[in-house]
Amino acid sequence: MIRFDEVSKQYPGGHQALKQVSFELNKGEMAFLTGRSGAGKSTLLKLIMRTEELNQGQILVGNRNIHRMAASEIPFHRRRIGVVFQDHQLLFDRTVFDNVMLPLRIEGYDKHEAARRVRAALDKVGLLNKEKLNPVTLSGGEQQRVGIARAVVNRPQILLADEPTGNLDPDLAAEIMLLFEQFNQIGVSMLIASHDLSLITRLKHRILTLDHGSLIKDELQPSKQEPASRNSHGANV
């Protein structure tokens, strides 16, 4: 689903964010991306979204070399990927419902179909009763779940998350991870950046560890749901 071949990224000014990173995330696979702050986790996710350009190597997403895409194709590439941000990036000038609606509005969905999907997504994250509220009135955990609903509402094949539990206490963080596992079970490929080692080691998924831009560890942990092997395909695909 996602393949990195010898990918390097250097920011203007000289900071080497990624050094020859290679790995492959299979369809339906769930993996964590960990490492200290500044190890390159965010950069790696940004390269997949193509909000940053790489300097060397190539990245294939669904067998397409995304850094060879024309600029006009980038929006359509991003629509196939759901993203959850640490600071959730919700818009406080509209309701929870309208926030989750945004990806569907962008794709020009029929209103009724869109509303049905928004409610399904909100139901999934347990916030159906808060659809009319402004997200600013919600707690941190709820805001993050609205962010997740928005990321999955257009049924992406890939879900990326950048420190999705960074601002949450341990119980809420575990809640969010449980939600991610549920999406993974229905076949969504997931790559979750997190520095919360105690949380992610408990979850028995593959863990990619970055250190100063290099991929230093790629541990395959026996998963609860599937016999995880580097080349296995997701059980539910």
Binding site: F85, Q86, H88, Q89, V136, E163, N167
Partner: peptide, 18 residues
């Protein structure tokens, strides 16, 4: 990707129903 709008996220008093 973690840029921009500063969030008001904080560990809330709510505990989602398991």
């Amino acid at each position: 990707m973690d840029s921009g709008v500063k969030n008001s996220a904080r560990p809330g008093p709510d505990r989602p129903n398991p």
